[in-house]
């Protein structure tokens, strides 16, 4: 029987020190912005989902914390009648890897901005983006790219066309591959095929600066998405004047990663040449209502394990530590 060694990284001196330093710097940044730390238990109380690391403790099946946002949501919904507005977290999550090279134990730092339903969300979204913009400099990255997206740009047209289930998943998978020809293949014969194919072409036409939003004008759903387009435009107007040196801001209209979770604006941080995003987040307004709480939330997570890998494999992307 083949033996596959799971990837539980041991951190030797340099990486361990870097992890401690980065975690401290990031939690300091979050604390400066009013985010207070919560530490959900490493052992899950909820029914363990697929992908979690599960084992028996005596007769009881338990799982290790696999996602901070989900673990925090459970903790917040159980413990608070009204939500704390700003929450931070740091630690490890354990998740079965999808790809063989992915780590099982992953170190993360992140934050969540929680409001009551109906409160204006735009300022909270910009607050998160501003904090994320400060992070590359804090970690010593020589340059970075922040992608702004919006899950509603895909979600709303699919819902408007009554597309759900497997067909909607296939469209999203095609968009995730950035393959407009696959969108056409998937929708072949469907009444919405020409409209959604044209929308996919518009979403995938550009991956560049603020002018990218103009690509949406050619979409059949331009009217439906006016609010989202306007929200993204206002966010860009707020963020571009305060862009730190060596950080690029790009609009990625076709960002569909996590579409089942995100409901609005999304944020992804990249370093040039990195193979994986280094931080990701966005708005997920359906999470707390699903737990019986009328709250809306957004947040982001910095993937420290990926940053540690990047520092080991591409030290040229980082400033020398002072």
């Amino acid at each position: 029987m083949p033996v596959r060694t799971p990837h539980f990284p041991d951190l030797l001196f340099g990486s361990a020190a870097r992890l401690r330093r980065w975690e401290g710097a990031l939690m300091g940044l979050l604390a400066d912005h009013g985010y207070r730390e919560l530490h959900p238990s490493l052992v899950l109380r909820e029914t363990p989902p697929e992908g979690a690391l599960r084992f028996f403790d005596g007769d009881e099946l338990v799982a290790l914390r696999w996602d901070f946002t989900v673990a925090l949501a459970g903790l917040l919904a159980r413990s608070f009648p009204t939500p704390p507005d700003r929450v931070a977290y740091a630690g490890a999550v354990f998740r079965r890897p999808v790809q063989p090279w992915e780590a099982v134990e992953r170190f993360e730092v992140g934050c969540e901005r929680i409001q009551l339903e109906g409160e204006p969300a735009a300022e909270a979204d910009v607050e998160l983006a501003r904090m994320l913009m400060a992070i590359p400099g804090l970690l010593g990255l020589k340059s970075a790219i922040l992608h702004l997206g919006n899950a509603a740009l895909v979600r709303r047209p699919l819902e408007a066309e009554g597309l759900f289930g497997e067909l909607a998943d296939a469209v999203v998978a095609a968009l995730s591959r950035r393959a407009p020809h696959r969108v056409r293949e998937v929708l072949d014969g469907h009444p919405s095929a020409s409209r959604l194919a044209a929308h996919a072409e518009a979403l995938l036409s550009e991956l560049d600066g603020p002018g990218t939003l103009g690509a949406l004008e050619s979409s059949p759903y331009a009217g439906l998405l006016e609010e989202e387009t306007s929200h993204m435009d206002r966010a860009l107007q707020a963020l571009l004047p305060i862009l730190p040196p060596n950080l690029e801001l790009r609009v990625d209209l076709a960002d569909v990663a996590g579409l089942g979770f995100y409901t609005g604006p999304t944020l992804r941080l990249w370093a040039p040449g990195a193979q994986q995003e280094l931080a990701a987040g966005g708005r997920y307004d359906r999470l707390f209502p699903g737990l019986g709480r009328p709250w809306q939330a957004a947040g982001f997570c910095v993937r420290l394990s990926r940053l540690l890998d990047l520092a080991a494999t591409r030290p040229d992307l980082f400033e020398e530590p002072r």
Binding site: I145, H147, Q275, Q276, E277
Partner: peptide
Amino acid sequence: AARGAYLSEP
């Protein structure tokens, strides 16, 4: 295309 290369170095 490699997702990372395409998105981080378009």
